[in-house]
Structures are given as C-alpha cells and as structure tokens.
Nucleic acid binder design. Structure first.
Lengths: 337, 337
DNA sequence: CTGTTAGCGCATTCAT
DNA sequence: ATGAATGCGCTAACAG
C-alpha cells in the first residue's frame, strides 16, 4: 500500500524556494521573511503537510518520547499513575509510549527492546513481580538513557526513584487495627521479589512490636498477587486453631477479594474480621463494607516520576542524580475496620 | 547530552565486513553464510546493539505502530479496551501509542497531529464528547492511513467501526425495569453529540412503547458525563410532583454516582428507586447495592477493533471495507433493580 | 535573509 | 555470498 507523503520538497517546489528556507519557516526560525513564512505555513496547512518526526529524530537524536512500562492496567493504580505522568510529559513536549509487562519478566524484557529500538529519550518503569534480573534495564544506563523507577523499584540501580513510605503506611494501618482492639492480625503480603512487600511487612512487624503483640509467623502469608488464590489463604487462616480477627492486605484488590470471601463464608466485616488494604483504589470506597486503606498520592507519583525523568534527560550525563523521592501515605478509615 | 549509539558500522568495522552484509545478517536474509551471521549476531548482542527503528521506518515507510486515541482512562472501560487491542496488535508485530483526549476536542486534534508526525500505520479512535468536526480525522483517510472507530464512532466517515448494540442494550435494561413493575423510569442520557446517547435513548423509548408506558420528556435528562453534576439532576428528579421509581443511566460511573446520591438522601435502592447502568465496569459489582447493568464485551471490542485495523493496513488502499461490527450486550441483574 | 552541502542509520538496488 | 552506491525526509553547519 503506497501512501504518498507530502514533504518539504513539495512545498519548496510549489513556492520556488529552497528546502532550507521552507524548513526554517516551518520550524519558526527567526531568520525568514514574514511573508515567506506566511506563504509556507499556508501552503503546508492546505497540503495537509505534517513534519516527519522519524527524519527529524534521526538527525537530532531525540524523539521527545518517553516510555512507560507498567505491570498491569487492571486496578486503578497504574492507569492513574500514567495519567499523572502524561500530564507532566505532554506539558514538557514529550509523547508517551505505554507498555504493559503483564507481570511477566519475559514481556518486560521485550518491552525494553521496543523502547530502545524506538529510541525513547527515557523510561519510567515499575517492575513486574517476576523480575529479578536487571540486565535489560542496565542497558539503558550504559547507553545513557535515563530511567526513573516508581512503586516497584530496583535497589540494584543508582537512578531516581519515586516511592511512598510503605513502611509507615503499613505501620499506620496495623497500628490502627491494634488500637481498635484487634489482637491477632494476619497479613497477606506480596511476593518476596518486590521490595514493597518487604517494607510493608516490616511496618506490620514494627506496629506489632510497639503494641507488644508477639509476631506470629503463621499469620503471615506471602502470595503472588494472583487474586484467584485469595480464597484459599483466607480459608486457611479462618481454619487456624486461633483464627485472626483482622487481615492487613498488601493491596486493595487483595483486600476486596478477602472481603468477598469472608462475606461468602457468612462472616461479618468488620465484626468478625476487620480488613485493611493498601492504595485506595477507586473500588475501595464503593465496596460494602467500604474498605479502610492506605491511600497513595497516585497521580502525584506519576507527575513526580515524569518530572524527575525529564530533569534527567535535560541534565548532562555527567551529573545524574539518583534521588529517591518518598511520598506520604494517608490512612483512610472506612467501614471495614 | 551526547549518547553514543552502537550502529551497524561499528559491527562491520569490528568484523571486517561490509555494512550490507551486517545488515543482511541482522535482518535474517538467507544469502549470508551461516558463520558470518553467527559472528554478527553474537557481536551485536555483546555490544548491546539495537536496530534503530527510526532509520528503518524512514526507509520502509512503515513504523509497525498503531495509535489509539481514547477519551479517558478513569473508568475501567477504556483501559480494558486498550488491553484487548494491545493483545492483538502485539501478536501481529505492532506497537501501540496511546493518547487520551480528556474528552476535549482540542486535545483530540493535537493527538492526531502527534500520530501523523510519528507516522503511525493506523489509528483506533473513540471520539471525545466534544467532537463535532471530523476534519482532523479525515486527513488520515486522505493520506491513506487506516482508521477504525470503536464505541464513540463517527457516522460521517466510511471506515470500519466496532460498536455494541446500544439500542438493544438499553431496550433490555428498561424492559427489565418495567417487568419488575416500575412505572416511572427516568433516564440520565449522554450528550447529544454522541451517537450512543441517541441509540440508548431510542432503546429506552422503544421499551416504554412496548409496555404501553407513555414517554414523559421531563424524565429524560441529557447531561455531559461530568459526574459532579449528577446530584443536581437526581435532586431535581426526586423533587418532581411525580418522582421516578427507577433511573436508567447512560453509564456505570453515572449510575454509581446516582446510587451514592440516593443513599445520601436517605432513600433506599432498589426499594424506593431502582438504578440500572451501562457497561459493567469493575466497580459495579462491588458497590452496595451492587449495580444492575448492561455488560459490554470490553476486551473483545479492543481485539476486534485492532484486528480490523490491521486487516485494513495489510489490505490494498483500493478495497477498503467499511464494515460495522456490532457486538452483543448482556443484561446483568444485580441488587439495584 | 536565503541557498548549498553533508549526513543521521539503515535497507536496497546494483554490481561483482 | 559479499561489497559499493543510492536515498528515505529532514536539519545543521557552511556559505553567501
């Protein structure tokens, strides 16, 4: 299928001008007579001329495009982060290419190849739950292409990161449960590959310690974020000799699933078991009972990450910063606790 | 910031080969000795070589990229459509660039410029609620770049479209309410600019007619999808001399907001007022009471649209089809009706 | 203010 | 099976 592309040459011919003049007129270069520019612009408009960014990027070695790699799009978390990121990016003149890794390491690697091949000026990454090797990301460092991590970060790499205070968030959530008189608090924690799992677990432990509640390993269940498995874990917890009277979940989708399972078993939330989630997904305010959760400033995370990335792009290679920006969480108490 | 890019030339030099040979080896051309290819591939890997798609696309006039323009990302509808679309696209070797118009005509126009400048091979579009002029999209037709519309389509243009049977969906929803004995059914309908608003309204009217319920214009309220306004409309409806006993909403976010407003006023759903939505967003199964709604096959819409687009891209310009694919809806009855 | 020249990185004719 | 030359559309020196 042969498409015809309108080029600068076409305009130049029609106007009896040189290519360079047309090019300059189009790019708003000051050194071009007002009426010449006017004529060029008008004709360009009339001919549906669009600058070919491929050619321009090839020369300037800049695509004004940033890549975003996220694990999934099913909760409201990542869509909202990308909204925030796009907001800042487009204001700074950058386009955005979004890829989902689907929580798969393989796919994540493939995504990075695409980003490289398309010469993005930088990438925003939140790791898949499977990712334990970071070579595919270190390539960017070697090539001098800025990376900024958010949410699921890589400790191995000395680049900017945007996270929330996961420790404190979990600490607040569990303290809240303890203050409400809960004695046996279970924790459905995330996969060990993710640092956030560890940090939230530590917050959980610290809260227990502060309130002098012994840490009981049998109440802590690591799971791989596949919500299909939640009912098994909940069933298990409820069948313990001393079942928990509260569950703190690593994420809102998890917590929501927990509530569904508990209700299906004929138990009441929060009377029999309290539930607390993490992230304040859109759905958590709607579910019945509404979910107590640790809110993250989602769009702000996206904005901050994009801003750090753009700063890095504009900065000289020599003085890259590896700032870690820690945003605050907020405990939102609702009916489930 | 000067990045160094590894090029074919680097590999050629290191291996004492010509550029063409290296290029052929890299692209899997058969006419190259097995061990030469082997050597090239190995070195390329070792040097972190990545083909520069900008250069390749410039020559081949093909970017293997499709653009997607959606109005928003806040409900679960559009994220899910894009997931379906990406699935098909990436299987066919296409990358995806996603833009949000934020329901703004201006932004939508800007988005199309970006797509053109980046030489996408085709675009998937769902119109913003403001869009009434389609020149920015007709440019694609003129340039021979395939377009496929989904959900919010443009009647003016003879291109493939993927929609659901909005008329039937609304008809089923309203019939359901009537069968449950509701007599005065209000309808919060979408902006007149969107065809889906009209079709759903027609389905509403047809159902009333079938059940011999007179059409009462005062119960039909057009609104612009800004959920902040919902409480005003609901308040108005409830203050009517003969208030409605049911509300059919153009969308799930709308219906969810309606339920919240009704509950806040101390009325019960569905006892006092039944509510039905449209689309079966993720949240609709979680809200209390859970929402009766018309489910759309969301991912399937994305898949179908992407497939039609890719078909079109591979087809010859001369025989473009303007198929309209109409997918089925399904009424999901929950607690709110 | 405007024109001329050179190449960005690569695939693709032609040659050999 | 390999090499040399051409050019995709455009910007960026370099000249007037």
């Amino acid at each position: 299928m042969k498409r015809h592309q309108v080029t600068i040459v076409d305009i130049a011919k029609a106007l009896q001008l040189s290519k360079s003049t047309v090019s300059r007129a189009l790019t708003g270069h000051p050194s071009v007579k007002a009426d010449t520019r006017q004529a060029v612009l008008e004709l360009a408009e009339k001919m549906d001329y669009q600058r070919n960014m491929l050619a321009i990027s090839l020369i300037t070695r800049k695509t004004n495009t940033i890549g975003i790699i996220v694990p999934e799009f099913t909760s409201s978390y990542f869509p909202n982060v990308t909204i925030g990121a796009q907001e800042v990016a487009s204001k700074a003149g950058y386009n955005t290419v979004i890829c989902q890794s689907n929580e798969s390491y393989e796919t994540e690697v493939a995504n990075t190849k695409v980003m490289l091949a398309n010469q993005v000026d930088g990438i925003l990454v939140s790791l898949s739950k499977e990712t334990r090797n970071f070579d595919h990301l270190k390539i960017f460092q070697r090539k001098g292409i800025p990376i900024v991590f958010f949410n699921r970060v890589c400790d191995d790499m000395d680049v900017p990161k945007v996270i929330v205070d996961d420790f404190e968030g979990a600490y607040k959530a569990v303290s809240h449960l303890l203050e409400r008189g809960r004695k046996r608090i279970a924790h459905l924690c995330g996969p060990t590959s993710l640092r956030i799992s560890e940090k939230r677990l530590n917050g959980y432990k610290a809260a227990l310690k502060k309130y002098n509640v012994p840490y009981d390993e049998s109440l802590v269940i690591p799971y791989d974020l596949n919500t299909d498995m939640v009912h098994i874990y909940v069933t298990h917890l409820l069948s313990l000799p001393q079942p928990p009277d509260a569950i703190f979940a690593i994420s809102d989708p998890t917590a929501i699933e927990i509530i569904q399972v508990i209700k299906k078993k004929g138990l009441r939330v929060p009377e029999d078991i309290a539930v607390v989630g993490f992230s304040n997904d859109f759905a958590s305010g709607l579910i019945h009972p509404s979910l107590t959760t640790v809110a993250q400033p989602v769009k702000e995370i996206g904005r901050t990450a994009a801003q750090l990335l753009i700063d890095q792009i504009n900065r000289d290679l020599s003085d890259w910063k590896s700032i870690i920006r820690v945003l605050k969480t907020e405990l939102i108490v609702r009916e489930s606790s």
